[in-house]
């Protein structure tokens, strides 16, 4: 560990704005991609599952 205090870490040797904006935006983009993607996957599986169940019950009724 090279930092002696928490506030020194936050300050980043005077470059806090540059460093934290870079890391922050990167995290937002990458986490956002993962969240959107998992949401998409869940809706696809739910939607297709509904279709398939409907299809099966229709076939059973026949």
């Amino acid at each position: 560990m090279i930092w002696s205090s928490w506030s020194e870490f936050i300050e980043m040797g005077g470059y806090a704005g540059f460093v934290w904006w870079s890391y922050g935006v990167t995290v937002v983009f990458m986490v956002g991609e993962v969240v959107l993607l998992s949401k998409r996957k869940r809706t696809i599986i739910q939607r297709l599952g509904r279709f398939i169940r409907a299809d099966r019950s229709k076939r059973n009724a026949e």
């Binding site: 980043m12 470059y15 540059f18 890391y23």
Partner: peptide
């Protein structure tokens, strides 16, 4: 962010 030393020329901005 926590272990590597700052760059002698660019300081901590190089962590980007």
């Amino acid at each position: 962010l926590l272990v590597t030393p700052p760059d002698y020329r660019m300081g901590d901005s190089y962590r980007i």
